[in-house]
Design a binder for these strands. Structure first.
Lengths: 340, 340
DNA sequence: GACTAGTGTCGAACCGGTTCGATTCGAACC
DNA sequence: GGTTCGAATCGAACCGGTTCGACACTAGTC
């Protein structure tokens, strides 16, 4: 492969001049610049990434730490990954995908060997092991998911408290008086999926304030179970007229459950979920939902990370950016059915 | 960060000696090796990846070219990605994930800048644009998906022809005489998804040979449509007793279709799909299926690629490795119902 | 006409590893 | 007792970029 030395030789200048001609960091005569550019074309010169990284201490790569848990619904993760890689590329960065179970060792390994300029952590837990190593690392990081202690790091997440309130409020305003909330499984919460209780607590408070009854259930994240559980829940709460789903698997299972009971939304029951638009399309879910904004979160995390890497960050202070919930109305809410 | 120079100084030896002590490429006294190792511990020394890449021309990174098409079922892709990244890490490689639409430019960019030691291409089309640049690249590559011209490159794929035959054969042996095959949408095929017709043609031939009627239909890959199409198909072919699905979305949609028609597998109809075990779990699909072996294909592709990179490849000749279809029996096949 | 300022170019050093050739030393050999 | 060999170590060069300081030349200033 051609090196910058080859380019310089063909152009009849020194290596340093060729370098300056390409980077524009010093003034160069139009004539020389022209010759260098021609040599680049002719040799199909592309700088060696390793050499560049060594010289500049910049790799133009960001590390993406994804964690896949047995108890989670994997397809939902894909949205985040795509959001990050696509936006990163637009910003001039490539993405090193790290899926090892041991996120801490992945982080320290990659960080110490200077393979990346920064990190993005997905699926951040309330008390995430990876945060301490990240704080100590010389590279900046962005989190997707709000941990208990977000100090020193930029955080991006959906505002789950506002989401819980909005779900309850929306149905209460339509006249619903008894609701069922289905969350992720309890062990997701125990593992540190704090968003589960952030949404649930806020929903509970809002319900109390509005005088609405709210039943809360931790659902499974796999299908035969969650379907049965939904069925049982509807049996257990015959007067409930609204269903709130903070559980992707539950949303995916609901159509067949409703069908088998011979009821439909919103005629017999109103439904609000919380999942991404892509998820809804993939599974063809006909329910109004609050967008989990996966791609948007990934994009914001990348943009902020890049501005930190490149030192163009507007503020030195770290940021906690909670996206306000936004409802995608697919027509699955209505006034409750009248009973007699 | 500590460099090998720091290690050498603390250990009281030259840089080259420190390097040899760590690599073991020349004999080193036990005493010196000990001192170097202590210095490494003390300084938490980790080699700089860029410098190492520059010196050795090895990056220990492989490039993973994934393509996401609107008309495909995205979650299925995740299995391949995880299969590749996890196996790569076990082999000592990290993975650069490239999701740009323009796979050719991604390939040439990464290849020319020497960011990776090899490539894995997913979702390879019959006539894939990326193959020529890959052949010209200095790095080796493995394909997941069989193209029309696999020359000079290692290829890994499910044996779709054998899959088609096996599907038909299995139901024919049980006594079925009229089958319906639902493939991916026709534009997947036009884009170069040759596996669609490889399976369909083989199924057709096998059916002809066994004297079985086979109706072939290109189904949609999104849910409200594919559900309706399945319903129409069952109406159109009332005497069909077996359903073959080479279309993930169709498999995901089938449970509610059958339910709404008040029929069930295998009592009223026998079903064989083609999707991964993980996919079946995620969607809780109760149908016997031929495993698309995504993770296994990813693993084989990585292993072969690594052996090429490291020059330990058993043979110089390129390989076309078609995995024999394997049936995961979930009990959705039986003898056809008797009519009168 | 000497002084200054700015422009354009070059050589050398540096980033942090690896590797080749040379050197020293002690043990084994004839 | 000189020769040969292998083990252990070191210095220097190299990988392919970037960047600093020096220098030559031109143009403008007083």
């Amino acid at each position: 492969m051609a090196t910058i030395g080859d380019v310089a030789r063909i152009a009849g200048v020194s290596r340093s001049t060729a370098s300056y001609a390409l980077s524009g960091k010093r003034s160069i005569s139009a004539e020389v610049r022209e010759k260098v550019e021609q040599a680049v074309q002719q040799l199909r010169y592309t700088p060696n990434a390793g050499a560049k990284a060594l010289a500049t201490s910049q790799t133009k790569v960001i590390g993406l730490l994804a964690q896949f848990f047995e108890d989670e619904f994997a397809p939902a993760m894909l949205q985040y990954i795509l959001g990050v890689t696509n936006r990163a590329r637009d910003c001039g960065y490539d993405t090193l995908l790290l899926t090892e179970e041991d996120g801490v060792s992945a982080l320290t390994r990659i960080s110490a060997s200077r393979m990346v300029d920064g990190f993005i952590l997905l699926n951040v837990a309330e008390n995430d092991d990876r945060l301490d190593p990240l704080r100590r690392a010389p590279q900046p990081g962005s989190l997707v998911g709000l941990p208990g202690d977000p100090s020193e790091i930029d955080v991006f997440d959906l505002d789950f408290a506002a989401t819980g309130r909005l779900m309850v409020e929306t149905l209460a305003e339509l006249g619903h008086r008894e609701l069922v909330l289905v969350s992720q499984p309890e062990h997701v919460l125990q593992r540190g999926g704090a968003y589960v209780w952030r949404l649930a607590n806020a929903a509970r408070e809002q319900a109390a304030e509005l005088g609405v009854t709210l039943h809360h259930h931790f659902g499974s994240s796999t299908q035969p179970q969650i379907g049965r559980e939904l069925d049982d829940l509807l049996d257990a709460h015959p007067n409930a007229t609204g269903l709130l789903l903070n559980n992707e698997a539950a949303a995916a299972a609901l159509p067949s459950v409703l069908q088998s009971r011979g009821i439909s939304a919103p005629r017999d029951i109103s439904v609000i979920g919380r999942y991404s638009d892509d998820f809804a399309r993939t599974f063809s879910l006909p329910y109004t939902a609050i967008d989990s904004a996966a791609a948007e979160l990934g994009r914001r995390a990348v943009e902020h990370l890049v501005s930190r890497i490149e030192g163009t960050s507007d503020s030195e202070k770290t940021v906690v950016d909670l996206i306000a919930p936004q409802i995608d109305d697919r027509g699955s809410t209505a006034v409750p059915p009248t009973r007699h």
